[in-house]
Design a protein around this nucleic acid. Structure first.
Lengths: 229, 229
DNA sequence: TCAAAAGTGTTCACCGTACACCCATGG
DNA sequence: CCATGGGTGTACGGTGAACACTTTTGA
């Protein structure tokens, strides 16, 4: 019983990225308008094909960069989709990844170069193939994650106010949170550094800016630390 | 800019299954001795290759059945592994699945027909390729799952005692639990049916047998219900 | 009668949650 | 001086965690 790899089926493997962004008004994902067949003109996740010489992690980074110019984005593998007829052209499997980014830092470049656009998660259009299913799984994972782990590093600008952080959580979890409870919880995590600076745009009084204490933040994640919101 | 699928790389896709079992003495996984090259004679997860005409879910079920005779096993997708040189023979990606089964119900058949063997999770030998990494990820997921969701349906015989259920949790979480707290917690979940029958093997007094209330059990899982142990 | 496992409640500390008022400032 | 968002503390209920003794019965 010698196994001969030559007899095994070979297939095309793809990667699709669910890119979450946040901009004070709400949680969004990035979509591109497909300019090739099949399904030309429809909206699609950011995707591409795996090369023989790279891992899925690499492919996700490469594809995201090619289609948006983004670099240094941390992406996490979500799930592998393999319905036989998911791509009408040819048998293809796709590994979905998701990432959290700060819209403001990346906005300009991509809107111009590509037919990319941010969509509120509450208003996602019909997407090609099984991309809506991918999105649903991604937002479910994001919600679960947000309610048990510190999150926000990546979605927010470097300096942010407590209210911004709270709005982010509210957008992700899709529910209102109590200001005092939220602040107490976040402070008890000990992952923020309060700056001397104030953001004077939001109010007359101004509100203090914070930034993440990256070391402590990463340590919490490594330690498998969880909380509950 | 028309995308031509013909230029894309095609690769072999595999499935590997981490099969957890429990037998009063501890948590185990099922391994087989590879009887073909490469790595002939080494221990391996139960795996095989994806056919063009099936999903990964299908493939996992088919492969597990072919190598063990098991049927009706619920498996869950774990993660997709794609290091470029993970298989020395050829570029292959592998989607890992895991399942929980009751050792007693399946034992006989497989040990005879195949070179399969149960290993305590604390004594896993060196496995081929990246299979140790797959196992590590699986047990981590199982632990997390056990500490937030009811589990055990599948790993235990149809009728079981409270102590057996507790031992199962202790084996998975790898820590001692308090008997009274455990029973109170489980009872509060309202997913067990207490039978009139007693198991007289374990003690002179005998201990009541329970079975899962499948409807309530599944409802809890669907409702995304979680607890903490 | 005794060994061996089954069965059973209470207390405490912590955390999640609900809730309302004063503060500082620019206009 | 006032409108606007910023900032702050307390009380209650629920739950996780620690903890020990009695019951049953076959040998």
């Amino acid at each position: 019983m010698l196994n001969n790899y030559n007899t095994e089926d070979k297939i095309i493997a793809a990667v699709d990225c669910i890119i979450f962004g946040f901009d004070q008004k709400g949680l969004k994902i990035l979509l591109i308008k497909r300019d090739f067949e099949p399904e030309k003109g429809k909206w699609s996740l950011i995707g591409g094909f795996l090369k023989k010489s790279e891992t899925f992690d690499n492919a996700a980074i490469r594809i995201l960069n090619r289609l948006t110019g983004f670099i240094n984005i941390y992406m996490e593998q979500l799930y592998t989709f393999s319905k036989v007829d998911r791509d009408p052209v040819e048998r293809t499997i796709s590994v979905a990844y998701y990432a959290l980014i700060n819209i403001e830092e990346h906005n300009e470049e991509l809107i111009e170069k590509y037919s990319a656009k941010w969509f509120y998660v509450s208003k996602i259009p019909q997407l090609i193939f099984d991309h809506n299913e991918m999105f649903e799984r991604a937002i479910k994972r994001l919600r679960r994650r947000a309610s048990t782990k510190p999150i926000g590093f990546g979605l927010l600008p470097e300096k942010f106010t407590m209210l911004q952080l709270q709005k982010l959580y509210e957008a992700i979890l899709d529910k209102k949170l109590d200001k005092r409870n939220f602040i107490n919880k976040i402070n008890s995590l000990d992952i923020l550094i309060k700056l001397d600076e104030k953001d004077m745009n939001s109010s007359r009084k101004g509100s203090f800016l914070y930034k993440f204490d990256q070391k402590k933040y990463e340590k919490k994640l490594l330690d498998d630390f969880t909380f509950k919101l």
